[in-house]
Design a protein around this nucleic acid. Structure first.
Lengths: 148, 148
DNA sequence: TAGTACTCCTATCGTTTTAATTGAAAAAAA
DNA sequence: TTTTTTTCAATTAAAACGATAGGAGTACTA
């Protein structure tokens, strides 16, 4: 009903990579998994998926690991959530259910504008938050951030 | 990831009842189900639940049916969604997963403020929309509104 | 060039949630 | 008493989600 746990894991993983962004240093899966409390094998899947989306690069073999493919300031939460969950907020008449396609009923749906407004609202929030912003927000804290 | 289908049905049903609000006239389940394209027996469950929440009143037997328990202007989408889905937007560190209780980690969670902002944003949107507002919005349309 | 430490890929599994169905039982009017 | 309607409780069906598993591939090291 909000952001899936998988997506939260993805965000946390990317945040962790952002923390090691300086110097292009590679971070290994077990390291990320431990730091952010993510099931290791599951994280593997997620990072793999993120790699396909151009969010991270990886190197195999000894000394391998993952790096952010772009600078933290160039990656927004909106992108990440859309990529992993498919969409930020999914309530629309253009859904799976044929009957809900009110787009084809003359545009008279009473709820459609509301869903649109809601979705837009969330998009604005998430589009305004880059990994760099999170990094800056976290810099003030004293203890490591194990939470999403 | 947004509003559950059940909840959308609930909203549509209440909207339909709002349309018949004048004169306190009772509306039968098959009538609502047909008008809003909702599975009849499923709608039964939903209306029953809404009855428990004080959203609708009902009368059994011949000539029975459902009525809105309060005027349309006194029912917001936020209330309805919270009642049926449990919450409007559920991404928080105070989740089921013990590790996510960052509330107890000194309040240093980087994501928590973002989730809060997102949730608040949605709440504002839905709290501002009463059934009466939807009614007004729908009044301009020419064809009946079968969509949520 | 063999070994080893890692990532990569794809498939599957189990649980939970959600959506929907079913079969009666109670109430109220005719 | 018969019909029409809601009410209640339980069950099934389907989908989404979270997680797991096994092996294949790649790069470094000695």
């Amino acid at each position: 009903m909000g952001v899936s746990l998988k997506c939260q894991y993805g965000l946390r993983a990317l945040y962790e990579l952002a923390r090691h962004w300086g110097g292009g240093q590679l971070v290994r899966i077990p390291s990320i998994a431990e730091a952010q409390a993510i099931p290791e094998r599951f994280l593997e899947n997620i990072l793999n998926q993120l790699r396909g989306g151009g969010f991270v690069d990886s190197r195999r073999g000894r000394g391998g690991g993952f790096v952010l493919a772009r600078p933290p300031a160039a990656i927004t939460m909106a992108e990440i959530i859309k990529f992993i969950d498919g969409q930020i907020y999914d309530v629309d008449c253009e859904g799976e259910h044929p009957i809900h396609k009110c787009r084809f009923r003359g545009g008279n749906c009473v709820f459609l504008p509301v869903w649109r407004e809601a979705r837009q609202c969330l998009e604005n929030v998430y589009a305004a938050k880059t990994l760099q912003d999170l990094l800056d927000a976290g810099a003030g804290g004293s203890t490591p951030d194990y939470c999403i």
